[in-house]
Nucleic acid binder design. Structure first.
Lengths: 198, 198
DNA sequence: GTCTATATGAGGATAGAC
DNA sequence: GTCTATCCTCATATAGAC
């Protein structure tokens, strides 16, 4: 496992990212040192600078990749049919994509304030794009007269918060199976937009 | 009269807490130095140690006070009547107590991982106590057969996440008046537990 | 690409004067 | 209670050998 020198860029780069992500999720960006990350990867601190110009860029790359992957996955999902069906699809997509990515989701949410203003603005725009996906569905449902929603923006934010909050407590070893939890959240979302459950 | 040195414990202590809270909310606990806090208070770093044995204890005190104040306020609120009325009361209480305390709420949520395990356990217990307040209402509603809820614990967590998420976007200068937002959330909560809105 | 060594600065915390 | 001065540790980032 421990080789002393040589070319390992292809394997080391993802390992740097993985180590950084895990440590930042556990301790927070500001509390994690480049030395800690290097130690987890198994290299010296100086070697990290082959993969990132500085610590800030490392954080930005992690968050940017996260949002890119999320939006790419969402774009690949089915987004057709009546609003009620699309809403259910969005909820299930969100849960299935976010729950297995605890560290990424946590870091992407908690470390926003450690981005420089320029980097923050970029990430925030991507986040907004994702939220707009849900709001568009709510608007569609209102237009179809199947959703009863006072304000689509507020309801969107409330639903997103509800969904994202799952990552704070969900554990695979928990009391309820994921399938049931998913059903509960689909039901909560349907109720939130004023659609009777089936 | 403006003295440069002397006894200012009564005024300095709350100023230390206020400065720490604001800086931590803005930059994060690990990123804030004792020197920064001292500068904001207008004293030298060493003087802070008259008010806290160390930085960790300062954070713990902030979070502990926050939870104490929350639970005290909640205990003083009306908690009688049918479940439907109690639910509405809880939602309004939560919003009215949390929204004006942006920094405290943010710090209390974001800095949990920077507590020592012992300190974390204490805060977590207080948080649980608060959540149990809401779950008790849901259980009551189910017992009264006016709420239709698959799982009271999950629904409790979903509602709390929805409510706490408000702090992330609500601004006094925002698009909608607080009174309307409150109505929307009361309505969302009612729908979540399966009660038709009025 | 990784190493060792280091420049340069900031961090938490303490001691002792006033 | 606050100040100044300082100890000691640790941080990010860079330079140059291999």
């Amino acid at each position: 496992m421990a080789r002393k020198t040589g070319s390992h860029a292809d394997t080391t780069r993802p390992r740097v990212r993985a180590a950084a992500l895990q440590l930042i999720a556990q301790h927070g960006f500001a509390a994690v040192s480049m030395r800690q990350i290097a130690a987890k990867v198994g290299v010296q601190a100086g070697a990290l600078y082959n993969y990132t110009p500085d610590k800030q860029t490392l954080l930005f790359d992690l968050l940017h990749s996260h949002m890119d992957e999320l939006l790419t996955a969402r774009a690949a999902a089915v987004r057709q049919g009546p609003a009620c069906q699309q809403l259910e699809g969005f909820i299930r997509f969100h849960i299935r994509w976010h729950l297995p990515r605890g560290d990424q989701v946590f870091v992407s949410y908690m470390e926003l304030r450690n981005l420089t203003p320029e980097n923050f603005a970029q990430i925030e725009q991507l986040r907004r794009t994702y939220e707009d996906e849900l709001e568009a569905i709510l608007r569609l449902g209102v237009a179809e007269a199947v959703f009863v929603v006072v304000d689509t923006k507020i309801t969107t934010l409330a639903l997103i918060a509800m969904l994202t909050g799952m990552n704070n407590w969900y554990r695979e070893s928990g009391r309820l199976p994921l399938a049931l939890i998913e059903e509960i959240y689909v039901d909560l979302a349907r109720r939130a937009v004023g659609v009777a459950s089936d």
